[in-house]
Amino acid sequence: MDFNGTDPSCRRPPPLALDIILNLDLFGIILYSVLTFMATVSVLIYIEECVYIYKKVAANKKSAIIWVNGAAPVIATMSCLGMWIPKATMFTDMTSATYFSIVVFKFLILMIEECGGDEAFLKRSKNKTFRISTGPCCCCCPCLPQVPVTRRSLFILKLGAFQFAVLKVIFTILSIILWTNGNYDVADMEITGAAIWINPFVGVLTIIALWPVAIMFMHLRNTLRSLKIIPKYAMYQLVLVLSQLQSAIINILAMNGTIACAPPYSSQARGYLMSQQLLILEMFIITLVTRLLYRRQYEPLPDGESDEESKMVVSSNNTANVA
C-alpha cells in the first residue's frame, strides 16, 4: 500500500497475456475457455453463413448481407482478443467500432436492395414521403414536415450513413497516429488531450449516421415485414447498444473508480475486461439469432402495385361469389 492506502498494483498498466495465463485459477481457466469457445463458434457460424449467402443470394445483396451478418462475430472476436491481450484493448475496440460504422451504411443499403435496388425502391415509393421526425435526432419533433421520396432525398440518406463509414476510419487512423506520438489516451479527459475532442465528434457523426437508417426503416417496415426486417433491425440496434452504450457505461464507471481493481488488473483494465466478457456472450447469442433471421430463400419482393391489384381482384371475386 502507498501512503494513500491504494494498492500500487492498481496503478499499473494492463497486464501482459502471459501474466494473465499464469494468474488464472480453475474458475478463470473455465471462464476464459468457454468465452473463447463462444467467440470461435461465432466465427465458424459466420463463415458457414457467408458460404450459404454466396451460393444462394443474388449478387446485389451479397455484400450488404455479409457485412451486416459479420457485426456480432467481429465484435466477439475482437473482444476475445482484448480479453486475452489487455494491452491491445484500444485497438480491438477501434476495430469493432470501425467495422460497425460500415455496418450502419450496409444495413441502409440492405433495406434498399431488398426492394430491388434504387430504381425499384423509387418506383415503389412514388408519391410517398419520408417521415424524418424519428430517432435518434428528431423523435421529439413531430411537427417536422415529411420529405418526398426522390432520387435526391435517397442520395442524402445514403450520404448521411456513408459519411460515418468514411470518417470513422479516418479518425481511427488519426487516433492511432496520435497514440504513437503520446497524444491520444482514451482515459485522458483533459482539455489538452486528443480523446476529449475526437470522441464527442465521432459521437455526433454516429447520431447523424443512425438517423437515415431509422428514417428508411420507418418507411419500409411494412413493405419488408414479410422479410423479417423488424427483428433484423432490432438485432442491428441491439449490437449498437451493447457494443457502444454498454461498453461506454462500464468504461466510465471504471475510470471513476466505481469498479474496484483486482490485481493484476487496474480498475480501468478490469472494466474493459468485464465489458469484453459480456460482449462475447452477448454477440454469441446475437450471432445465433441473426443466422436464423437471414437463413431463408431470397426471392424477389412482390411488386407493390401488383399486390394491390391482386387484392382488389380477389376482393371483387369474393363479393361476386357472395352475391
Rank of each mutant, 00 (worst) to 15 (best):
F201P: 04
C140G: 00
T180G: 14
I45K: 11
E119Q: 13
L288Y: 07
I177D: 12
A269L: 02
N127I: 02
K158N: 08
K128E: 15
T134S: 13
F162W: 11
W211D: 06
V204E: 02
V213P: 04
R270Y: 14
Q246Y: 12
V313P: 04
I285W: 06
I250L: 12
L205A: 09
L288S: 04
A39H: 06
N4F: 14
A58R: 15
C140P: 00
D307T: 13
Y184V: 08
T172D: 09
G82W: 04
A260R: 07
G271H: 02
E113S: 09
D307L: 13
I196G: 05
Y99L: 00
E282L: 07
A194P: 11
M189V: 12
T36W: 11
T95Q: 01
L22C: 01
C138L: 14
L122Q: 09
W67T: 12
T36M: 09
P264R: 02
T180A: 09
N23I: 03
F284R: 04
I230A: 12
L178D: 03
M189L: 15
N317Q: 13
R131K: 14
L24P: 01
E190H: 10
K311F: 11
E299N: 11
Y99G: 00
I250M: 07
P212N: 01
F130G: 00
L224P: 09
G28H: 06
L35C: 07
N256R: 11
L279R: 06
F164R: 01
R225S: 14
F107E: 00
K126H: 11
F164Y: 15
Y236P: 01
G5Y: 11
I85A: 08
K311T: 11
S125I: 00
I207S: 08
F201K: 01
K56V: 11
D118G: 06
G193K: 01
A64H: 09
E114K: 04
R124C: 06
E305I: 10
D93F: 12
I20G: 06
F121H: 05
I173L: 15
C261H: 05
I66W: 03
P15R: 07
G182R: 00
I109N: 06
S153I: 06
L174P: 00
